[in-house]
Simulated scan of single mutants.
Amino acid sequence: MAEFNLTFSDPSTFILTGIPGLETAHIWISIPMCVFYVITLLGNFTVLFVICKEQTLHKPMYLLLCMLALTDIGISSSVIPKALCIFWFNMKDISVDGCLTQMFFFHVVSLMDSAVLVSMAFDRYVAICNPLRYTTILTNARIVKLGLLCLMRAVVFIVPLPLLLKRLPFCANRIIPSTYCDHMAVAKMSCGDITVNKIYGLMMAFIVMGFDLSLIALSYSLIIKAVLRISSKKAHQKALNTCTAHICVILMSYPVGLFSTLTHRFGQDIAPYVHIILANLHFLIPSMMNPIIYGVKTKELREKVGKYIFRTCLSIVTAFTLS
């Protein structure tokens, strides 16, 4: 006990408790979490590998899909490995600088993920509403520049968060009831006034998310308007099918993230473990499902992935037979 008290009073260290109220179930919770994380890495790295290897997939749509895969890997990898260390090895301590770095990284990648989804909505708008100009409007070079712009936007919005936390004095109690260093969870450890932190965090969440969702809604309203002008029902279905995967990804990403943000700030009557479980699901489920959805719904990508899986299985069988 004396060792833990010393750790808690260490001015350079925070303690992440895991999921408060479910400490006895940490091992059992870690099993599906680990499985989901492995599937996330396998799925997204497979998408990246296949798109990089296949010249026919070096198109704007698939470059955006690569960006989405990278953000999915970044989001899950910024949180899940530390959570598994807490569950498996009881490694609960994290330095203040490490905590702020983790917070900065996953917030930047989360905003980047949202910006990529907006870019993909614009890609679908151009493909359906201006198909003849698609190759001139969306070139690979412009997609790369768009990706850099998304990254710059995320960094500009998130840089103030660790700076706002750095100015705060922290209390002797440095126990964070979570699996990761969220901005508000760290701010609540302070003995100082965190009003600015609350306002900026809430404004950033609603302004950025509201702006991105508005652009996505505008894109799809224009897409629906263009589709309704088409007389052929078959053409209707074909046009909408190109958007199905993106719509599914949006429905998984935004509602859970928005609900998690609201419950963390206003859900005082909700059990703490609900906040943490929702947040971890927000990091894991979309990241795991995105490559599966695009793999199933995108014919060209599905065929290329199937080809590489067949080759890999054939190589393994051949090597096993020869041995």
Rank of each mutant, 00 (worst) to 15 (best):
K304D: 05
S221G: 09
S95E: 09
H107K: 10
D193C: 05
K225H: 13
A319D: 02
S78K: 01
F104E: 14
R311Q: 04
M184D: 07
V159L: 13
L165Y: 07
L42K: 04
T179V: 15
C243K: 08
A121P: 01
S78Y: 05
L100G: 00
S253R: 13
S78I: 10
M209F: 03
L168E: 12
S287V: 05
V317L: 12
L117N: 06
D212M: 05
M112A: 09
H275W: 05
E300I: 11
V186F: 10
Q102F: 09
D72G: 14
G306P: 08
V208N: 13
T298L: 14
I15W: 15
L149I: 13
A226C: 09
P169K: 13
A83E: 07
P272F: 05
I199Y: 09
I224A: 07
A154I: 05
I199F: 09
C129L: 04
F45D: 02
R174Q: 11
V144H: 14
L228R: 14
L228W: 03
L213V: 02
T312C: 12
S315M: 10
H107T: 09
E54C: 08
L168S: 03
I270R: 04
G18P: 10
I175D: 09
F320C: 07
V47P: 06
R311S: 08
V79A: 11
D10F: 13
L41H: 07
K304V: 03
A239N: 13
S232K: 04
L168G: 06
F283N: 15
N241V: 00
L322W: 08
I199Q: 10
H236T: 03
F14K: 04
Y308D: 02
R124G: 02
A154C: 10
A239Y: 00
I199M: 12
F122C: 01
L65R: 02
T56R: 13
L168V: 02
L100P: 01
S95K: 07
T195F: 00
P131T: 00
F36M: 15
L117V: 08
Y125V: 01
F8W: 00
F310M: 04
L228S: 06
